[in-house]
Design a protein around this nucleic acid. Sequence first.
DNA 1: TCATAATATGCGCTTATCCGAATAAGTTTA
DNA 2: TAAACTTATTCGGATAAGCGCATATTATGA
Lengths: 113, 113
Amino acid sequence: MDALSPSLSQEVNQLHADICSALADPTRILLLYTLSEGPRTVNELTVEFGAPQPTISRHLKTLRERGLVIATRKGQMVEYSLADKRLIQALDLLRAVLRDGVLRRAIVVQEVD
Amino acid sequence: MDALSPSLSQEVNQLHADICSALADPTRILLLYTLSEGPRTVNELTVEFGAPQPTISRHLKTLRERGLVIATRKGQMVEYSLADKRLIQALDLLRAVLRDGVLRRAIVVQEVD
DNA sequence: TCATAATATGCGCTTATCCGAATAAGTTTA
DNA sequence: TAAACTTATTCGGATAAGCGCATATTATGA
């Protein structure tokens, strides 16, 4: 247990980073925000995003593998839902950080009267 | 402005994802947690992490470019500090999500009385 | 200015990620 | 079982991220 502690926390840190890398894509962020409004089937998401179905499925797989979304079979379709509402809280915090700091430097904001 | 709106929000989403991808590395997560305790010079971080100095510098650059940390020259050294405490709140939320959901599936937890 | 200390960057390499296109796999109804 | 529908996976090529190593930059002090 003495020897396990460091490698365990290393492993936890890696999993922590893995969650972040699941968030590191604009489409996946939008998927999470969409699912925060309620469960959706793959087809509904495909239509809503106007993206190829394999693309949506692959993004959902990334999120599912890391436990951020939950897949439930409903007949021949699969319904996806958000695994934890705190994901949205975290994303909102990061967006606030963006607004208050990074945004100003990255985009030329045109001040209108 | 009608035509700019979608591309602007796309750009914001990309920046949002960029912040997340800055978090998508165990070393950078530890750097942020360390800086949340107070500012550190590159050398202090290098010693504390036991990692090569160029590695630390490159990670800090990644964080700095995205506005997550702030660099201040102090004589011949550069002091880094956390740009926004909400980053830690967000990381803590994600770690809580990890604890409550993913961890159980990823690591064999040995239940000891 | 020269030497030294602290930090940053460039280069070559390996590894990971993303996308499109095609295809496979599971489910329902006939 | 066959056909239709929904979802998942695989492959190949392009792009980006990571690391170790060497070196460049900036600042201090003699």
